[in-house]
Amino acid sequence: MVYEERNIWASLIVSVIGMAVYTILVLQQAAGGPLDDVDWVPLMLWTIGASIVAAIVVSIVWGMLAGMRDPEGVGKSDQRDRDISHMSTRVGQAFLVIAGLGVIVECAFQVDWFWIANTMFYGFALSSIVGGVASVIAYRRGLV
């Protein structure tokens, strides 16, 4: 597994876990009540921060383990890696655009801040996950 693919996997794993943890924490805090009554800001900020740190740590540890097996191949990327990165960025951006449009509609209807922020949060997470899945598929099956 090449350097870029390892980083994609680390980001993908952490994104899915982070999204699940945030969702569980919000639902627990709501305790059956209205979701927009939850104090979501600290939960969201801590989840985002912890996810960034976790992705970096997982990537570094995985890279160190891979470096012990193949010291020559660590950190190398080629044109294929760049092409896959560009493709996955385009795929992921589509979901950011959808989330952004959703936020604009929510703002037009003066929806509660909770829903606006969560639309963007899940849009970013979905963008990262879908882009990561597209990258993994491209690494496994090739670009067509």
Results as ranks from 00 to 15, higher is better:
M1S: 15
V136H: 10
A138F: 01
H86E: 15
I52S: 05
S127N: 04
H86K: 15
V26E: 08
V41H: 14
V38I: 10
W40S: 12
V2C: 09
F109D: 00
G67P: 05
V74A: 10
R140I: 04
R80T: 15
S127C: 01
G102S: 03
V91R: 09
S77F: 15
L65V: 14
V103S: 08
D78Q: 11
G142H: 09
A50C: 10
G63H: 07
M19Q: 05
W115H: 12
C107K: 11
I56G: 05
A117R: 07
V130N: 05
G67Q: 05
A30W: 02
V16R: 04
F114T: 05
D78C: 12
D78M: 11
R6H: 05
P71A: 06
V144F: 11
V136C: 10
S135D: 07
I52G: 05
G132W: 01
P42E: 03
T23C: 11
L25G: 00
I98R: 04
R82G: 02
L35Q: 06
R90E: 01
L27Y: 09
L65D: 02
V97P: 06
V2L: 06
A10L: 06
E5I: 00
V58Y: 04
D39L: 08
V91M: 08
A55H: 01
D36E: 14
L27S: 13
A134W: 02
M44P: 00
A50S: 15
L65Y: 04
G75T: 07
L43K: 12
S127Y: 03
T47P: 03
T119C: 08
A138R: 01
A94V: 05
G142K: 09
G63E: 04
W9S: 03
